Simulated assay, not measured.
Amino acid sequence: MVGAAKLIADMPTRPRRITVVAMFVAAAAIILTAAEPFATAMVDSGTSLGIDSYFLVQWLAPLASEAPELIIAVMFA
């Protein structure tokens, strides 16, 4: 392991577990904070462009939310 993963792995058990749980809680808070504005902005943008909200929610939202992972996977492949 290298970098931040090594720093966390080298910690004693209790501080390591607290750090990992804190990172999960922080990630969940960020996702919950960003999800609603993202969805609202996407539907509002689609409405102003004349795109059906059903199409946006069913097709465009999954693509937009997964695009960063897809780009990274393509780069590594």
Score class of each variant (00 low, 15 high):
Pro12Ser: 10
Phe24Gly: 08
Met42Arg: 03
Leu7Cys: 10
Ala5Asp: 07
Ala9Gly: 07
Leu60Ser: 12
Ser53Tyr: 06
Ala35Pro: 01
Pro62Val: 05
Gly3Ala: 00
Arg14Asn: 11
Thr19Arg: 13
Ala73Arg: 13
Arg17Lys: 14
Thr40Ser: 09
Pro68Asp: 13
Leu70Asp: 08
Ala22Tyr: 11
Thr33Ile: 11
Val25Ser: 08
Ala26Ile: 08
Met42Asp: 02
Thr13Pro: 00
Thr19Val: 13
Ala41Met: 07
Pro37Lys: 08
Ala26Gly: 02
Asp44Pro: 00
Val21Ile: 08
Leu7Ser: 15
Ser65Ala: 12
Asp52Glu: 13
Val20His: 02
Ala64Met: 12
Pro12Arg: 11
Ala29Thr: 15
Ile30Val: 09
Ala77Val: 09
Val43Gln: 03
Ala9His: 14
Ala61Cys: 03
Met11Trp: 03
Ala64Lys: 04
Ile71Val: 11
Val2Ala: 04
Pro68Phe: 11
Ala26His: 04
Pro12Tyr: 04
Ala5Lys: 08
Ala41Gln: 06
Tyr54Gly: 12
Met23Tyr: 08
Glu69Val: 07
Ile51Trp: 04
Ala5Arg: 10
Val43Ser: 00
Asp10Trp: 11
Met11Val: 07
Ile51Leu: 14
Asp44Leu: 09
Met42Thr: 01
Phe76Glu: 09
Asp52Trp: 00
Ala29Gln: 04
Arg14Trp: 13
Ala64His: 02
Ile18Gly: 04
Gly50Asn: 11
Pro15Met: 01
Val43Asp: 02
Phe76Cys: 03
Ala4Gln: 15
Met42Tyr: 04
Ser53Lys: 15
Asp10Ala: 14
Met1Val: 03
Val43Lys: 05
Ala28Trp: 07
Ala35Met: 14
Gly50Ile: 13
Ala39Asp: 09
Glu36Pro: 00
Pro15Lys: 11
Ala9Ile: 08
Ala22Trp: 13
Met75Thr: 09
Leu56Trp: 01
Ile72His: 10
Phe24Glu: 02
Val57Ala: 09
Tyr54Asp: 06
Ala73Pro: 02
Met23Phe: 15
Gly46Arg: 05
Ala77Cys: 04
Gly46Ala: 12
Arg16Glu: 01
Ala39Val: 07
Met1Glu: 05
Asp44Ala: 13
Ile72Val: 15
Glu36Leu: 14
Ile30Thr: 02
Leu70Thr: 06
Leu49Tyr: 15
Val74His: 03
Leu56Asp: 06
Met23Val: 15
Ala28Thr: 10
Ala41Trp: 00
Ala29Arg: 06
Ala5Glu: 09
Ile71Trp: 04
Ala22Glu: 09
Glu36Ala: 15
Ile31Cys: 12
Phe76Thr: 05
Tyr54Trp: 08
Asp52Gln: 08
Ile30Ser: 00
Leu7Lys: 15
Thr33His: 06
Ala39Phe: 05
Ala39Ser: 06
Glu66His: 10
Val21Trp: 07
Leu7Pro: 06
Ile30His: 00
Gln58Met: 02
Ala27Lys: 05
Leu63Phe: 15
Met42His: 00
Ser65Cys: 08
Glu69Asn: 15
Arg17Pro: 00
Gly3Thr: 05
Phe24Asp: 03
Ala22Ile: 06
Thr13Asn: 10
Gln58Cys: 01
Glu36Gln: 10
